[in-house]
Amino acid sequence: MAGDSTNGRRFIVEADGGSRGNPGPAGYGAVVRDGDTGRIIAEAAEYIGRATNNVAEYKGLIAGLRAAHEIDPTASVDVRMDSKLVVEQMSGRWKIKHPDMQPLAAEARTVFPRSQVSYAWIPRERNKDADRLANEAMDAGKAGRQWEPKGEPRPHPVAPAAAVSPVAAVAEPALEAPAPQAGWAFAGGQAIATTLVMLRHGETALTPQKRFSGSTGSDPQLSEKGRWQAERAAEALAARGTVEAVVSSPMLRTRETAEAVALRLGLPVRIEEGLRELDFGAWEGLTFAEVQERHPEDLNAWLASTKAKPTGSSESFASLTQRVGVARDKILARYAGKTVLVVSHVSPIKTLVRLALGAPPDAVYRMELSAASLCAVQYYSDGNASLRLLNDTGHLR
């Protein structure tokens, strides 16, 4: 049994993941049940792109734990899965050797204190609800969309201090920041925090012209001014002396910016695909005025909804949020307790700031991020996040 919770409440989390190809198109599903009645009080599912069964199973576990945490972070949790691998590894009886599994297991352990969680294997036929959701997520991905709950979300009454939106609890538990709880998480008397210092890349030839420059365009290099900006950022970050790792988007302009800082700090650059800029499709290389003239209806739809896509694009702000949230979680798991420089673009950085604040999706349209500007968010092990810096350009003056 899991350790006793403060208020005696108990949840059962059933989770599953699948891959059609292993690796192949993958998704996960998870349900949270009331421990006394067995009633389902929250669901979570997501299509995660190409992955293995084991990765999908771990992501299902994380989503289930987070959904339970949003309802009541003081509850005890009995996790039940038909994956013997995940159950044995999370119980500490088997070693986790695969590099893809290690950060996911570490992330799962940060959701609840270990004393509040237990793990048990169940036969596949007793895990039908989680399996159903995982298949729904994969079916949605095959259709080019993300999973959405069917019908009205199931109610889950909780004390007012821990209340969360049923839509948030069901639809996006893996990405949206949990509702802040009273107090912070402490270990040994000190708060456990991981800091992401986010640096937008320096200018390219397209930046001063305010042209759309995403992940499917010309992939421009830094201009002379952009290289100067990267050097100034490197000087400022070296002077602070707190950065312990550097992670970058794969785009040329971000890699050049990251390498300038990493060289000064004596650190390697780790590439994270999920940090790339939004795909702007047919808008790549165009100014806002040119897009307004050529694709007025698509532009208006895009500005009105974060679920709309630029003309010919493969993704919306909503789908970008999915991959950026996954990238964030991987970084937090890999560098827990450290200060990490994340070199990225306007859209991913705005999204990370929005998620940290718990702001609505359209908040991304209300932020200004200058070239080579710095933002910083501190993430705590209890799920809270604190915005510490936004669009700082002091090092460029």
Rank of each mutant, 00 (worst) to 15 (best):
A75H: 12
L104Y: 04
A174G: 15
Q221K: 02
F280S: 07
Y58M: 13
L65Y: 02
S249H: 08
D36S: 10
T74C: 08
E46I: 00
R154F: 06
L303I: 13
V170K: 04
Q190F: 08
P103H: 07
S5D: 11
M81C: 05
A233C: 04
L206P: 00
C375Y: 06
E70W: 01
V117L: 11
T216D: 01
Q146N: 07
S248D: 06
I192W: 05
S373R: 01
V377C: 00
R255P: 00
D16N: 14
F112I: 10
T52N: 02
A169S: 13
P149D: 11
T37L: 12
D100N: 12
G281C: 14
Q102C: 03
S115A: 14
A105C: 13
H69Y: 08
R227N: 00
G266Y: 06
L85S: 03
K225F: 02
P220M: 07
R388T: 08
T306M: 11
G29E: 03
S218P: 00
R109S: 12
S316D: 02
A238R: 10
G266P: 13
V164R: 09
W147V: 07
R366A: 13
F288V: 08
P123W: 10
G49I: 00
R323G: 10
G144A: 09
S386V: 07
E259N: 09
K59G: 01
H156A: 15
D16W: 04
K128V: 14
R397I: 13
N135E: 15
Q378W: 00
L61F: 09
R255E: 13
M1K: 14
Q116A: 07
A301Y: 05
R66M: 09
V353C: 10
E152C: 01
R124C: 03
G394E: 12
A234E: 05
T339P: 02
P149L: 10
R211L: 00
A30Q: 03
A106D: 14
P348L: 14
